[in-house]
Nucleic acid binder design. Structure first.
Lengths: 265, 265
DNA sequence: AGCCGCTTGTGAAGGCACGCACAAAGTTGC
DNA sequence: GCAACTTTGTGCGTGCCTTCACAAGCGGCT
């Protein structure tokens, strides 16, 4: 998912034609699949094949690729190696991106040890935490420093991306430090919405939200399964179990909304 | 497309109307923020306040909330407790969702220990792995079972959501087992695109992709910073560092694309 | 009681993304 | 060298999502 949210606006005037955000996300997926294909010795691949392997429409795939230029050969397909190279260039992977990870607790520790990053051009180069028990230890050969060193270390090592895996309440403060240190792209795992200047890009990964979205679908499927064919009703699971008791009507005696149930005309 | 509204009025809360996927994702965010507000003792909250706190447009927020019914009070705002309750109902959180986690390696172990799940109504109820060193141990009081037990255990414990945190190559097989066991919603952390029947819902969380998207923005920002106001050219970062050497021009000497830059404009 | 100010709910418009379908361009076979 | 076939690149229609802007509704003040 993927909420564009804060700060992605405002520069609109200066960004006349860029690659659509949705396409960028897919380009990364294509790139990985191409890597696998290359390992398997594939020389070329058609949009149809690549689309099937990545689960998208082939026309969409071609349009995505067209944003980075025309590197296909009509009648044949795409050269795997050439396409890999162009994708890496377009995604900025030809520059090494040093990553800092703040918060080496439960999730952070796993992220620090996650092989999927370094292997794909994102070496985690710095680790930070506040916990005295963690500061000073090494994880995967990297020293955990105290967060107060964020500014100096990030500047020193040319950190371009920060990953925040702290508890929610600490996240904004850490974020401010990163921004202060010149980091302009942040991946936020903490369950808060970070406030940042316009020029800073924040992406949020919220595991609890992902589960809640799934829960919504579980409920929806349950309804569809139970209710006999009310095809219009894959909406709000107004479950029988729940008779909508005013949570605590005492809070304020306001009528639960007299206009029966929400002014749907 | 505007609300046909089948006649289910009179009774409380029956809103037959599908909620846009994008809205569902935001509803979950609103819900968390409302939880915090409730803790802080807030009685009511206006769309403007809640929108600011969650980083969205207030009109969008109101429209999102309108999908689950009209529970606001004009001139005042929304009752925090009432809204929390309605959101929980709409998201299906009034039913307990048992979660199974497959793959207790690096990332999986962290997910198993992540407090953010159980605390939000998603108790991780079953753990699976293939590694003999892991099968049999307990994590957070939960026994790690062998994946071959997936079918029986999931049915037995009424698992509704599966989280796959295995290495890529193993994911599809695990996925098939889950589907076979009746699980209809899957959160996939493995870097592969899962093939599932239509009735199964899969959400993918791909950390490497998230970083690559950020890397793209890093490159874009770098361009903007370096190039002095070249309005049209921040589409594809054709960086100087990279002179686009045909990775292996031998494949075919096809022209690298004369139409500069993908026929934009 | 009646008016005023505040906030919701939503119609309508604009923008973006998706997917179809086809022309262009390249390859293969004869 | 030509025809048939394959696959790319993209113009265009469609539908969803976002945003604006405002009427309707509600509480408070006089």
């Amino acid at each position: 998912m993927t909420l564009p949210q804060a700060g992605s606006e405002g520069v609109a005037a200066r960004v006349p034609r860029s690659i659509p955000e949705a396409s960028v996300a897919r380009l990364a997926v294509y790139l990985r699949m191409l890597g696998e294909l290359a390992e398997q010795g594939a020389d070329t691949v058609s949009s149809e094949e690549l689309a099937a392997a990545t689960g998208v429409n082939s026309a969409k795939l071609r349009k995505d690729l067209s944003y980075i230029g025309s590197y296909g050969i009509r009648g044949v397909g795409y050269s795997v190696s050439a396409l890999v190279h162009q994708l890496e260039r377009a995604l900025g992977l030809n520059h090494r991106q040093a990553v800092a990870l703040i918060g080496v607790g439960n999730l952070g520790h796993a992220l620090a040890g996650y092989g999927g990053f370094g292997g794909r051009g994102f070496p985690v180069t710095a680790l930070f935490d506040v916990d005295p028990d963690l500061v000073g230890i090494h994880i995967n050969g990297i020293l955990v420093e105290h967060v107060r060193a964020i500014g100096d270390t990030c500047r020193e090592r040319g950190i371009t991306i920060g990953m925040i895996a702290t508890p929610g309440p600490a996240a904004q403060g850490i974020c401010d430090m990163l921004v202060e240190a010149g980091v302009r792209c942040i991946l936020n795992f903490a369950p808060v919405v970070l406030q940042v200047p316009d020029e800073v890009e924040v992406r949020k990964v919220d595991l609890a939200v992902e589960l809640q979205i799934l829960a919504f679908h579980v409920a929806r499927k349950r309804l569809v399964a139970e209710s006999p064919e009310t095809e219009a009703s894959l909406a709000v699971p107004a479950t029988d179990v729940d008779v909508v008791p005013p949570p605590d009507a005492q809070t304020n005696g306001h009528p639960v909304n007299s206009t029966l149930n929400g002014g749907m005309r």
